[in-house]
Design a protein around this nucleic acid. Structure first.
Lengths: 233, 233
DNA sequence: ACAAAAGTGTTGAGAGTACACCCATGC
DNA sequence: GCATGGGTGTACTCTCAACACTTTTGT
């Protein structure tokens, strides 16, 4: 803020500021998004991204966590959160000028218990790549979130935010495939992942219906080793 | 915005919203940033990123362009602008709660005429990687901008926003070197750039003190050819 | 025994990196 | 003719992409 005139709060009409959080998880073999059903005008009955008005003494990220806890029961420091984009076109909300800072949250589906009917609002999961019609400009916000996630997992170890503590290589590969919507070669995938050094083996195996699979953990300490492969120059 | 309660505007105290724009150019063999000197409390006399309060009927990007024109004389559709990040910690401005949407502008130095003493504010260029002490949290905003620019030029043809219509390969290489703060190999650089297909030769040459250099243009149509080289998976 | 998922290697092509000299012009 | 920046090619290494069969378990 570098404006030079004397500051007079009454001189400016202030827009409302909200924080909306796109929560993405892997569930039922798909990337899914958490939505809540609106109970009031406008967009009554439509599904919307959870969020709400910011308070004067909290940061944007705190507001995102508070609203998430209030509206969906999701809470705790284990929830990965990052700022996504700020949407502020006049007219995006018919009630008043609303500027919303959108956040992206990545969670492992295993850790989630949706508080039933919290806030008297229904919260439910939907396919992130095939959502129902959304309120306001929330379809734009969701697209922005899935696009960010795709870019992120290609350049950072963000995929592990969507997985449990331990996982098999097949689960890891399927996680990438569901987010990228693209099949990957099993042998190339395993070789690249194992040689990258970001995985640590565990003594445990997952016994299922068939041959048991070795379990791996994400090595947080090895994440910094990532040397970028750039397109230019 | 998905809050479920009835909306009552008076129920919420609203923060002030500003838009600040980090303008970066290549000048004098360095990446430079446009700053204005504050004339009022707080941070009187310090240098700051240009910006100001948003109006109720303009989009965030429009506000960025308007403030830039008002404060520095920079205007026109030729100015590349993108949203950077939104800073909203309580206390970042001692006067009141201010949430600022920061934008990044990339301009070619050749096209710039700073309106002298516009708005009674001094505007001047400073090295982006060695700025003077900045007002508020503007050092954070500037770091965010230079970091975004570095990432951007490695994965997109953003560098051309900082260059004139035509340029020599040496000028292009120096542009990369000044932003990345890293020397590049001349032969490898030229081979990669020419084989990427994003450059078109022109019949013109730049005659200087010595052997004339061939001039190139950026092929906007070829920008989409970029296939990403990803780190994962 | 069979069904189902886990696990495993090689080869060819393309891209990245390192590196040193001749060329065209202005003075 | 010399100083200055413009322009050029090769060899090695590494990573990527394509591709099919054997192994281990549960039933």
């Amino acid at each position: 803020m570098g404006k030079q005139e004397r500051y007079d709060p009454s001189q400016y009409e202030r827009p409302a500021v909200t924080v909306d959080t796109v929560v993405l998880v892997l569930r039922q073999g798909a990337l899914q998004v958490l939505l809540i059903q609106r109970k009031n005008w406008p967009c009554e009955g439509m599904w919307a991204i959870p969020g709400g008005f910011i308070k004067m003494d909290e940061s944007l990220a705190s507001a995102a966590r508070r609203e998430l806890a209030e509206e969906t029961g999701l809470e705790g420091p284990g929830i990965y959160l990052e700022q996504l984009y700020t949407f502020g076109d006049p007219g995006r909300d018919p009630r008043t000028r609303v500027i919303t800072a959108a956040y992206l949250a990545l969670v492992c589906a295993d850790r989630i218990v949706l508080r039933p009917a919290s806030d008297a609002a229904d919260a439910a999961w939907f396919p992130a790549y095939d959502p129902p019609p959304l309120a306001f400009d929330h379809d734009q916000i969701l697209s922005c979130a899935t696009q960010r996630l795709r870019h992120k997992i290609e350049h950072t170890p963000a995929i592990f935010q969507l997985l449990p503590e331990t996982f098999t290589l097949t689960e890891l590969q399927e996680a990438y495939e569901h987010v990228l919507r693209q099949e990957l070669d099993k042998r190339n995938f395993r070789r690249k992942m194992l040689s990258s050094g970001i995985l640590a083996g565990t003594p445990r195996v997952r016994s299922g219906d068939h041959r048991p699979a070795k379990l791996y953990r994400f090595r947080e300490d090895a994440a910094a080793e990532s040397r970028p492969r750039r397109l230019y120059p």
